[in-house]
Nucleic acid binder design. Structure first.
Length: 260
DNA sequence: AGTACCACCTGACGGC
DNA sequence: TGCCGTCAGGTGGTAC
């Protein structure tokens, strides 16, 4: 699930629940999710500390602590966070959690264990060390056109390549291409200036709308693709049948009439 | 450089 | 009811 809008919602959730409270306990149920750190190091860094700030870059969430340290969360395909107090509210597949002085917990749940937990001292350095491109929300159109025209791969791959643009995954790349009326297998470098401009607008539109709707697919307006890809299977634009194809190794929904 | 394919891991779902 | 193959919104490695 977690693409840029989802992670942005997680960021706001942490911001509104978990800042400025002393962390009294750290529970690591699945240390195999730790990357570049150890159980002891993570515990030592978090216990007694407080979360002060939040940042997001693409699909990564950074939660700032004292002494220029950040807890870094990546959600894989099934990750999410939950702030709760009662044991019966504990999420399934809780892999890691922090307990605060008010007895509430901030849990990291991840059914398929494809998420990652790490620490960094510098967000910009972390992003460059992990070869992340600019955040999809902070792109300007000139940079965007340079990225697209400089890539020979199919446009869907380019949009999903975190090293080129950070934050877009399978679901929202489909939505973006649908709104821009562009077929996912088109070569990036062969798009016209006008198509790139439409695509740029579609990225802003889709990410902004999804974020406004709490990244909840059920709330996406009816004229977007999302409510139809697993619903009636009909294009909200022309009424034709949507088609499922493979592109970039992923399932991909398109309207063959509207996307050229 | 780009692509196809596999692996990682777990659980839900449909067919038999 | 139960077993089995298939599939899932992410990423990274390998071989062509």
């Amino acid at each position: 699930m977690p693409e840029l809008p989802d992670v942005e919602i997680f960021r706001r959730y942490v911001e509104s629940t978990s800042l400025h409270k002393k962390i009294t306990k750290v529970s690591i149920n699945n240390p195999e999710l730790l990357t570049g750190t150890t159980r002891a190091q993570l515990e030592k860094t978090l216990r007694g500390n407080i979360f002060k700030t939040t940042k997001r870059h693409g699909k990564h969430l950074f939660i700032g602590l004292n002494q220029e340290k950040y807890l870094v969360l990546h959600f894989g395909m099934t990750g999410y966070i939950k702030y709760y107090r009662k044991p019966e509210e504990k999420p399934d597949h809780e892999r890691f959690r922090c307990t605060f002085e008010n007895q509430y917990h901030l849990a990291f749940s991840c059914q398929r264990k494809l998420g990652k937990i790490s620490l960094t001292q510098n967000v910009a350095k972390f992003c460059s060390a992990h070869s992340l491109g600019p955040d999809a929300n902070k792109l300007n159109e000139i940079t965007f056109r340079d990225i697209i025209s400089g890539s020979k791969s199919m446009i869907k791959s380019t949009l999903m390549d975190q090293g080129k643009i950070a934050g877009i995954g399978n679901i929202y790349s489909d939505e973006i291409l649908f709104r821009a009326g562009i077929h996912p297998k088109r070569s990036s470098s062969k798009l016209t200036k006008e198509e790139m401009s439409n695509l740029f607008q579609a990225i802003r539109d889709v990410l902004q709308t999804a974020t406004e709707k709490n990244a909840d697919p059920e709330q996406m307006p009816n004229h977007y693709l999302l409510p139809h890809r697993d619903g009636d299977g009909l294009c909200p634009n022309c009424g034709g049948n949507l088609k499922k194809i493979k592109a970039s190794g992923r399932n991909c929904y398109i309207c063959p009439k509207c996307q050229k």
